Amino acid sequence: MTDVAQTRPGPSLEGLDEEARAIVAGLYGDGIVARQGAFSTAWVDQLNEDVLAAFEEARQREGGAVSRGPNRYYVEVHPEQLRGFVDLVTHPWVTKVCETVLGPDYEIVEIGFDIPFAGAKDQPWHRDFPSPPETYEQGRLTSLAFNVTTVDTTEDMGPFNISLGTQFEAGLEFDHQQFPDRAEWPRYEAGSVYKTPQRGDVSARSALTIHRGTANRSELARPVVVLGVDAPGAGHDALHDPMVTRAFHDALPPELRRHLHARVVDELVPIVQKHDIEGLVMG
């Protein structure tokens, strides 16, 4: 991996410790970094219980579980639906990644999960949203996606496939500025790696790095929790509507309340998802 952070305008490396430098190098180089064993397997198993319960609830209503291809769904949830939410967003590595890359005023704008079930197919190569000028013109990342697998991933479970170093491609000619032409797929595949994280691992990536979910040839589901974080002004908060009850909000650490972009309400209402990646619906 090359330390392209030295040649891009991204965060200054001056005064950063070794861990922070590695974070910048990874996200501005490959487009992804990870911390193995960040959480206990017992913590992850509890997270998995909450994910499966939230999925069963979401599938019962329109707009609850959004298709991301055959046998693959994405569900956005409220923070307090996951008992591990506070542990995740206050983990020292997670907060360090956010502060280092997005700045001290980063905003937590989304929490949800992706589930490829048995029979899920290869997705087309894509990025999760169009690249902003701050990234393709100025070489600055303004958002991150953290992923936490809730099961031990094996090669037949449809592992995440990411084409390294593609986060700074402008992609203005992509379909919806998200889906590169099929003729370019061999190039992305040639520069890609498959990720098989285990329970307890957490990763952070630029959602602009070209990637795809792959075919789940096993008989098992592979849930992955997704945490979306923005730099101020990135604008993805307009695509999401997380809510917290007043009691939950008041019990949060003050520093977390400062970063959490969520409506405070008397009673939670189900989320009707606003961020639908149209090109993934049919796979």
Rank of each mutant, 00 (worst) to 15 (best):
A5V: 06
T7R: 05
P9E: 06
L13D: 11
E18K: 09
E18W: 09
G29C: 02
Q36M: 02
A38N: 10
A42R: 05
L47I: 06
N48V: 00
D50C: 10
V51R: 04
V51Y: 08
E57S: 02
E57T: 01
G63E: 03
G64N: 10
G64L: 09
R68G: 05
V77W: 08
H78P: 04
T90K: 08
V94G: 02
K96S: 09
E99V: 15
Y106I: 04
I108G: 13
I108P: 13
F113V: 03
G119L: 10
Q123I: 15
Q123G: 12
Q123Y: 11
W125L: 01
R127Y: 08
D128P: 02
P132I: 13
Y136E: 01
T154L: 00
D156R: 10
M157D: 01
T166I: 00
F174N: 09
F174S: 06
F179L: 07
F179A: 02
R187A: 11
E189V: 01
Q198N: 05
V202F: 08
L208Y: 15
S218E: 03
R222G: 12
P223K: 12
P232D: 08
T245N: 04
A247S: 15
F248T: 12
P253C: 02
R257A: 00
H259S: 06
V264E: 06
K274F: 01
D276F: 13
V281H: 09
G283V: 07
